[in-house]
Simulated assay, not measured.
Amino acid sequence: MALGGGAGLLAHGADAGTHSGTHAHADAPAAADATPSEGPAVELTAAASTDPIFAEVPRPSTRLRPAADPLPLPADAVVPASCDGYPEQAFRIGASAWGVRFLAQDGLRQDDGDGPAAGEPPAGPFPGCWGEELLGRFAALVTARAEHTATRAFFTRRAEAWEERFAHQTPAYEAAVARMRPAPGGLALDLGCGTGRAMPALRALVGPSGRVLGVDVTPAMLSAAARHGRGRDGHLLAADCTRLPLPGACVHGIFSAGHAALREWARVTAPDGELLLFHPSGRAERAARHGRPLDPGDLLAEPNLRPALETTGRRPAAYEDAATHFLARATRST
């Protein structure tokens, strides 16, 4: 993420040649002279709603000073923050490069209008809680992508033999899916589907008029799923299960044998939908297998999972952490 003047270097480094926005008119007020009560304000655009960094961030503070010079951007650049006259206040080039040009008013904090506290230096190029939110999101995205790279590397090496190696677990998956109650004709997801062992059972639940979607971040696992005929039970999608390319409230049942991204999954789940988390071994057995003690901070521990579900409007309808399996089923809070 490039900030301030660095954003211009980023745009030029991308061989920008086609401007994606409009220039200010000659008689327009200079944005650089804007104060919190006059001049153009920085606003989020419609593109921000689907941007990995800007989605769902609060509205920018009125103390943010727009950059006042036009900046040519590549034709395919995405602009999540703009202002009248100078639309390219923030931009994304490709999937991993962001530029943020607007600055805080000199000597003012972004999170209040009282100026710096006693002994505190004036605001720098990108200070305050709003800027820290963006930087924190960028750091989290980088971390998640690094984890995805490691995950893909791990499972790609094992994809070819995965189905045969764990075929004995298929009855356990079928029994777990049978605990779900998605509406017939609805949409069911198998998140972190691997070779899609839960997809036939999900297909049986939603019926011929329903839809099943198997989602995994490792293309090699999806290829293995296709070889084993799981495409007959539904569609296979390579995607990040923590950032699903789906509209809100469209899913009627989510099955996952992997990690939980409860807030994102609640976003896509219909009011009558439900979630089932399953693993064919219990938490204690898995910890012992990896030579570590049970982690009290584990999201799947019941004292942690219950309040986490409640914050998304769900409640646990079943919780089982046995030697032979882990299962948690959640439905809408009443």
Rank of each mutant, 00 (worst) to 15 (best):
A2R: 14
L3M: 08
A11L: 11
A11V: 09
H12W: 07
A16P: 00
T18W: 03
H19V: 03
S20G: 15
G21L: 05
A24D: 11
D27V: 09
A30W: 11
A34K: 01
T35Q: 11
G39S: 04
T45R: 02
A46S: 09
A46T: 07
A46Y: 00
D51I: 02
F54N: 02
F54L: 08
E56H: 15
R59H: 09
P60S: 06
R63H: 12
R65C: 05
P66A: 09
A67E: 10
A77V: 03
G85V: 00
A90M: 05
F91W: 03
F91I: 06
G94N: 09
G94E: 05
A97M: 10
A97Y: 01
L103F: 09
L103I: 01
Q105A: 12
R109P: 04
Q110V: 08
G113Y: 00
D114R: 14
D114N: 12
E120T: 11
P121V: 04
G124H: 05
P127H: 10
C129D: 13
C129E: 12
W130T: 03
L134W: 06
F138I: 14
A139D: 15
A140Q: 11
A140C: 01
L141G: 05
T143H: 13
T151K: 14
A153E: 15
R158E: 12
A159P: 01
F166T: 15
F166N: 10
F166P: 01
T170L: 14
P171M: 13
Y173F: 15
E174N: 13
V177W: 02
P182M: 10
G186V: 07
G186K: 05
L189D: 12
G194D: 09
T195N: 07
A198L: 01
M199S: 05
P200A: 10
P200V: 04
L202Q: 12
L202N: 13
V206A: 08
G214Y: 05
G214A: 08
G214P: 02
V215C: 08
V215M: 06
P219Q: 10
P219V: 04
L222I: 04
H228D: 13
D233N: 13
G234C: 06
L237C: 13
A239L: 02
D240T: 04
P245L: 09
P245V: 04
F255L: 07
A257Y: 00
A257Q: 03
G258F: 01
T269K: 01
G273M: 07
H279I: 01
G282K: 05
R283K: 08
A284L: 11
H290F: 13
D295Y: 08
N304C: 12
L305D: 10
L309W: 07
R314L: 15
P316Q: 07
P316G: 06
Y319T: 02
A322C: 07
A323M: 01
A323T: 14
A323S: 12
T324V: 03
F326I: 07
F326T: 09
A328D: 04
R332Y: 02
